[in-house]
């Protein structure tokens, strides 16, 4: 189940943002006993040229938009670290 979700997130982000680096970390264990357990908590580290010239708010929106319905169905919580290739290499 979790592996499927990670694959879904990965393919959505790859398709929309063409990242040069992408890490998806499942942190479901932090939410044990939580009312939303079942829909996971993930950390996404993503590096994409599409974040150039974008503020942090807009970068997060691009990630949310790329994930679309997954945000409602499969993802309860998402921490996002969105960087440009230049920022990532520093």
């Amino acid at each position: 189940m979790t592996i499927n979700r990670i694959e879904l997130i990965e393919s959505s982000l790859n398709a929309a943002l063409n990242p040069t680096h992408l890490e998806i970390i499942d942190q479901a264990k932090q939410h044990e006993g939580h009312r939303h357990e079942g829909a996971g908590h993930f950390v996404v580290k993503i590096v994409s040229e599409q974040f150039e010239q974008q503020g942090v708010l807009q970068r997060h929106r691009l990630v949310y938009d790329a994930l679309g319905d997954l945000m409602q169905t499969d993802i309860h919580a998402l921490s996002i670290q969105a960087m440009t290739p230049t920022e990532f290499s520093q």
Partner: peptide, 21 residues
């Protein structure tokens, strides 16, 4: 807000972001 998660923090009428930001 075109923002799918909580919390959402608004300052002076503008969304500044969620928890990470």
């Amino acid at each position: 807000a075109n923002w799918p998660t909580f919390p959402q923090i608004y300052v002076s009428g503008e969304l500044i972001g969620g928890c990470d930001i």
